[in-house]
Amino acid sequence: MDDLAQDELDEITRRINDTPLKVLGWLTPSEAWDEQMERLAAKGTLVPGHPVQSTPTHNPRQCCTSN
């Protein structure tokens, strides 16, 4: 790959990420990534590159270490 220019590598990456895959239910990798980021953001999980979500308040009744 050392002989490929950056624009050629970018085009290969774009084509891969925009190709629907059966393993992803015929979503493209880009679409699957976006859906997963949305799910994480909806849970309040911090996602790099996405707006900061407020963290849920700790609930001792739901904590796996509480008795």
Rank of each mutant, 00 (worst) to 15 (best):
Q62F: 06
Q62K: 09
K43P: 00
N67I: 05
P51M: 02
L40V: 00
G49C: 09
N67H: 07
M1N: 12
N67C: 00
A5T: 13
N17E: 15
L21S: 08
V47E: 03
S30R: 15
L24E: 02
L24R: 03
T19A: 12
L24Q: 01
P20N: 01
C64V: 13
L27S: 06
M1D: 10
D2Y: 12
L27G: 00
E35T: 05
V23R: 10
P29M: 07
P20K: 05
H50Y: 13
L46H: 11
L21A: 10
R15M: 11
I12D: 01
S30C: 03
S30G: 06
D10I: 04
D34H: 09
H50M: 14
I12M: 12
L46T: 08
E38F: 07
A5V: 04
C63D: 15
C64T: 10
D34V: 03
G25P: 08
A41D: 09
L9Y: 08
D2R: 14
R15E: 15
E35N: 14
L4Y: 13
Q6L: 13
R61Q: 10
S54W: 00
R61T: 09
C64Q: 10
P20V: 01
A41L: 05
M1S: 15
P51S: 08
D10Q: 15
M1W: 12
P48V: 04
G49R: 06
E31G: 02
D2P: 08
L9S: 06
W26K: 01
L9F: 09
N67K: 04
V47I: 08
R61I: 01
Q62P: 00
T28G: 06
R15S: 13
K22S: 13
L24W: 03
P29D: 07
S54L: 07
W33I: 01
P29W: 03
S66Q: 08
G25L: 05
P51G: 01
S66N: 10
R39N: 07
T19I: 11
N17R: 13
Q53F: 00
I12E: 06
N17G: 05
D18P: 01
E35I: 10
T19S: 15
W33G: 01
T13R: 14
S54D: 11
E38T: 14
A5L: 12
H50L: 12
E31V: 02
T45M: 06
D3S: 14
P48W: 00
V23C: 09
S66V: 10
W26P: 00
D10K: 12
D3G: 09
P20Y: 01
K43S: 09
G25A: 08
G44N: 03
T57I: 06
P60M: 04
G25N: 12
A42D: 13
P48C: 05
E11C: 05
L46A: 11
P56M: 02
L27C: 04
L9C: 12
Q62M: 11
A41S: 15
P51I: 00
P60Q: 02
P51K: 09
V52W: 05
Q36N: 11
T57K: 11
A41T: 15
T45W: 04
P20E: 02
C64M: 07
T57P: 00
H50P: 00
H58M: 05
L21N: 01
Q53G: 00
I16N: 07
P29N: 09
E31N: 03
C64H: 06
S30N: 14
P20F: 02
C63G: 00
R39M: 11
Q6D: 13
V52H: 07
